[in-house]
Simulated assay, not measured.
Amino acid sequence: MTLVRSILFTVAFYLVTTVFLIAGLPALATRRSVVWLAQTWGRVTLRLLEAIVGLRVEFRGLEHRPAGAVLVAAKHQSALETLALVTVLDDFTYILKRELMWLPLFGWYLARSEMVAIDRSKGSRALALMNDEAAAAMADGRRLIIFPEGTRRAPGAAPAYKYGVVHMYDRLGVPCLPVALNTGMFWGRRRLTYRPGNAVIEFLPPIPPGLPRDTFFATLQERIETASDVLMREAGWTGAARDAVQAPQT
C-alpha cells in the first residue's frame, strides 16, 4: 500500500507542479508574486502529501523566527524541507546551484525571485560573489535559507558542515536561525517512496550575530545535530548519539 500511495503522490505532485508552472506565468511580473506562488505550491503539495500518503509535516518553534533579515541554516535530509520551509518563511530566498536556473520554466521562476545562485565554475571567487548577493538580500530584509552541509544527508550519517556558512554569517551580521528535522525518516534521498507519519521541522532559538567564527560553527552544529537526533529517535531511529561538532575547515 505504501508503494501505491507513493506512486499516486508522485503523479499528483508532478501534475500539480506542471499546472503551477504554466498557469503561474503571469506571476513572473514581480518577484513578490513568484514568492507567493511558491508558497501556495508548497502548501498544496503538503496537503497532497497528507491526503494521499498520510505524511503530515509538523512545524515546531515557529515563535523563534525573528523579525526582519535572518540567515536560516537547516539540516538537509530530503526534498521535503525544501518545499516545506517556504510555507512558513515570508519573503524567503534560497542559496542554490546556478545550474538550476537553466531548467525550462522552473529556472525562470528561480531567476525572477532573485535566488542567490552559486556559480561553481568561478572557483574560490564563487564564495565572494555569493556573499555579495546574500548581503543584497539581507538589505531587503529577506529570510535567506542555506543548507550548511551543501547536500542531502541520510538520517544518522555523520555531519558534513561546510565552513562557507561561517563566512556568510560573519559577512551578513544578522541572526542565524538553526533548523532541525527528521524528514529523511519519511521521504528518502534517492527514492520515490514516502512513509506515512509525522515529519517534524523545528526552528531552534536564534544564534545572535557577532560570535567568533569557530564558536558559531560549533554552536550551529551542536544545536542542529542534537535536536535532529531527538526528532529522529521520536520517529523511530535507533542509532547511537554522534559527535555533532566538526573542526573548522576553511
Results as ranks from 00 to 15, higher is better:
1 M>L: 09
2 T>W: 14
4 V>E: 04
6 S>E: 00
10 T>A: 11
11 V>C: 04
12 A>I: 01
14 Y>G: 13
17 T>H: 04
21 L>E: 08
24 G>R: 14
34 V>I: 15
44 V>F: 00
47 R>K: 07
53 V>W: 04
56 R>F: 00
56 R>V: 01
57 V>K: 03
62 L>G: 02
64 H>T: 13
69 A>N: 07
71 L>G: 09
72 V>A: 10
74 A>N: 12
75 K>W: 14
76 H>E: 01
77 Q>I: 00
79 A>I: 12
79 A>D: 14
81 E>H: 14
87 T>L: 03
88 V>T: 10
91 D>G: 09
92 F>E: 08
93 T>G: 08
96 L>M: 15
100 L>N: 06
102 W>N: 03
105 L>T: 10
106 F>L: 09
109 Y>V: 03
112 R>N: 05
112 R>T: 12
116 V>Q: 10
118 I>R: 05
119 D>S: 10
127 L>D: 00
128 A>F: 12
130 M>R: 01
131 N>S: 07
139 A>C: 13
141 G>D: 11
142 R>T: 04
142 R>G: 11
144 L>Q: 06
148 P>R: 08
159 P>Y: 03
167 H>N: 10
167 H>D: 10
184 G>Q: 06
186 F>Q: 01
189 R>V: 02
197 G>K: 03
198 N>A: 14
198 N>G: 07
199 A>P: 03
202 E>I: 00
207 I>C: 05
209 P>G: 09
213 R>P: 07
213 R>H: 09
215 T>P: 10
215 T>V: 15
229 D>E: 14
232 M>D: 05
233 R>M: 06
234 E>A: 15
236 G>P: 11
237 W>Y: 12
237 W>Q: 00
245 V>R: 01
245 V>P: 03
245 V>G: 00
245 V>W: 02
247 A>D: 12
247 A>W: 02
